[in-house]
Amino acid sequence: MAAGENLHFNRILFQYDLVPLRMDPLGNVIKVETANGTFALKQKKLTDRQIRHLHKAYSLAGRLIIDAVGPLPSKYGDLVVRGEENSYYLMPWFEETVPDSDLSERYRHLFVRSAQLHRQTLQEEKDASDLFATAAQMVGARQIEWERFLNRAEHRVYPSPFEQCILSFTADGLNNMQRAFAYFSKGQEKNEDGSGKKLRRALCHGRLSPLHLLIEGEKSFLCNFEESEEDFFIIETAALFEQASVMLSPAGESWNRLLHSYFSECPLNEEESEFLFHLLLCPKAPLDLIGEYEENRGHSEQWYTKRWMRLSRAYTEMTGQLQQLLDQKKKKEEEAKKEEEQVKNE
C-alpha cells in the first residue's frame, strides 16, 4: 500500500484506538492485524439509507435476535466512518474455512441462515394485495416477452437449434405462466369487506448471496446488511431459490436437502407456500438468456443451447422437488385433519 493510503487507513483505525501492525488489501476489504486482534476494514460507498439499514441490523444482532456479523462501533460511537468519497466500517476478521468456489457448501449455510433471519424477525401478517398485483404484472410482462420471442421464432423457415430447443419447451412454459398469472390475479382481488390476502413480513437481507456469508468451521454468519429492509420475505425466499437453482444445477439430491433445511428453519403457511410456488413457475433466468441471445449473441449457438438445457433442467428439478414437498406437506396436513375429526367423532 502507498504511504499516503496507509496514513489514511491509520487515521480511520485511530477512531477505533487501533494501531495496525500489518494491512493487506483483499478486494474491498482490508485485513488489519493489530496487537488487539485481526479485523476486516471494509471500504465502500454508502448512502444514508444504507447506513440506516446497517444500524438496524446491528441493533438486532446486538439483541441476539439475529446471528449476524455487523460493524463494530468506533470509540466515538460511529458504526460507519464516513469519508468524502468512501465510507468505512470495521468487522471482526474470520478465517474462512469454505472457499468461495464451494458453492454447494456455501448455499447449505446460506439456506439455513436466511431462513433463520426470516423466522427470527417475523412480523404480523399484512395485506399483500398490492404484492399480488405487482406479481401478476410481472408475470404478465414475462409472458408477453415469451410470446414475442415465440412469434419471431415460429415464423422463421429454419429456426436455429437454440430456438428449436425453446419451442419444444414452450407448451409447458406458457402453461405454467398462465397458472401463475391466474393465481396472482385472483390474489389481488379484495373481499367484500375490503380486506385482501395477507402475507407475513420479516427482515429481508436484500442481497442474499453465497459470498455475503462468513463461514468458519460449522459457524456461519450473514454479513453485508446494507440493503436489509423489512418486506414480505417470501419474495426474498423465491429469489434465493431461483438463484440457487441456477447456480447449483444440477443439484439433484442436495436440492431436496436445501429446501428441507429452509422449511424446517422457517415453516411457511399455506398462502406463502402457494405464493412461492407460483412465483417460481416463472423464472427470470431463461428470459435473460433469450434476451442475451437476441441482442448480443456473444457466444456460440452451442453455448446457448447448452445453457438453455442446463437452465431448463434446473428449473424442472426445482419446481418438481418443491411441488413434491408441498404435496407431501398437504397430505400430512390432510391426514392430521382426518385423524382429528376421527378423534372428535369417537
Partner: peptide
C-alpha cells in the same frame, strides 16, 4: 475524514 475534532468517546 480530513481532520480530527476532540469528539467524546462513547
Amino acid at each position: 475524514d480530513r481532520f480530527f475534532v476532540d469528539r467524546m468517546y462513547v
